[in-house]
């Protein structure tokens, strides 16, 4: 067999591989336009409609199918993801800043931090529930679940920032000090603007990971459900196309988030290349 034949074969295979990756999502998207409330989550499509999208927002007449408990869950998940994003980015930046100097024990600390993204959610979730039970702490999504989200996302932010600082030329900071600028102000005026693209990526990572996280939340949050927990709740019952419609909407939301990130990234790159004289001039 010659090389171009192999290349062709692998190309066809890769196409099939992408079909495998996307197939279920495409089917899900199609079925979300099934008619309701009598249409089920399967083919054939009886009639195309946006019934299940309306159903999600409570715009349909009451039927035997209960609406997804997403309104409050959405708010909680957004707030939780925001909190997680802020805290884990701050922790990630400070820890990576510390790793710019070599110190003994850096290996242990490195693995301690990375452990946070390796240990499965069920295990830390269970452990946290046990700690909370023993100490008599009430479990809440904004408390016990929040700290676990940070345990999970902080390592990602840390690794992103570590990679950024690896390529960072610290002589610009020294130049700033030698001009009489204090280290704190140097960080704000020089270091931070230069690492900002990295910080943005760390924030994006933390937000999306937290927003989608459910195995840690399952044990560590109390009665109030976050969005993924609300979806997880549908696993044990009959699935209706409203879940599919919801899936389509969350995917669109993710893309919106990604576009915001891309725009911010583009702006910060443009700002770096900017030609105009600054506002102080």
């Amino acid at each position: 067999m010659n090389a171009s034949g192999i290349k062709f074969g692998l190309g066809v295979y890769t196409t099939l591989f992408l079909v495998f990756l996307y197939g279920p999502l495409v089917v899900l998207a199609i079925l979300s336009f099934q008619t309701g409330p009598e249409g089920g989550p399967q083919f054939p499509i009886i009639e195309w409609s946006t019934y299940w999208y309306k159903h999600l927002f409570g715009l349909t007449p009451p039927s035997r199918i209960a609406p997804l408990p997403i309104d409050q869950g959405l708010g909680r998940s957004m707030l939780l993801a925001m909190m997680t994003m802020v805290v884990s980015t701050i922790l990630g930046v400070t820890a990576a800043q510390a790793f710019r100097r070599k110190f003994t024990g850096s290996g242990v600390v490195f693995y301690l931090i990375v452990l946070g993204m390796m240990v499965p959610g069920v295990l830390v979730g269970l452990g946290m529930a046990l700690v909370a039970n023993t100490l008599g702490i009430e479990r809440h999504w904004w408390g016990t679940a929040f700290v676990l989200h940070v345990v999970y996302t902080f390592p990602f932010a840390f690794l992103v920032m570590l990679a950024i600082f690896n390529r960072f030329d610290s002589s610009v900071e020294e130049a700033s000090w030698s001009l009489g600028v204090s280290p704190a102000r140097t960080f704000r005026k020089v270091t931070f603007p230069l690492i900002f693209p990295g910080v943005l990526s760390a924030m994006l990572f933390a937000f999306t990971l937290s927003y989608d996280e459910f195995s840690r939340t399952l044990f560590a949050s109390g009665r109030d459900l976050t969005l993924p927990l609300a979806i997880y709740g549908t696993f044990s019952v009959e699935v209706h196309p409203n879940v599919f419609a919801f899936g389509v909407l969350t995917t669109l939301f993710s893309f919106a988030l990604l576009s915001v990130y891309a725009v911010l990234m583009g702006l910060s790159v443009r700002r770096a290349k900017r030609i105009a004289v600054q506002e102080e001039a």
């Binding site: 820890a95 600390v109 301690l112 931090i113 452990l115 830390v124 946290m128 700290v147 940070v150």
Partner: peptide, 18 residues
């Protein structure tokens, strides 16, 4: 710089596992 992150991991990762 290290203390907050390490403390967080010890309290909310190592302690629960222990």
């Amino acid at each position: 710089l290290l203390a907050p992150g390490v403390l967080w991991m010890l309290l909310f990762l190592v302690l629960p596992l222990a």
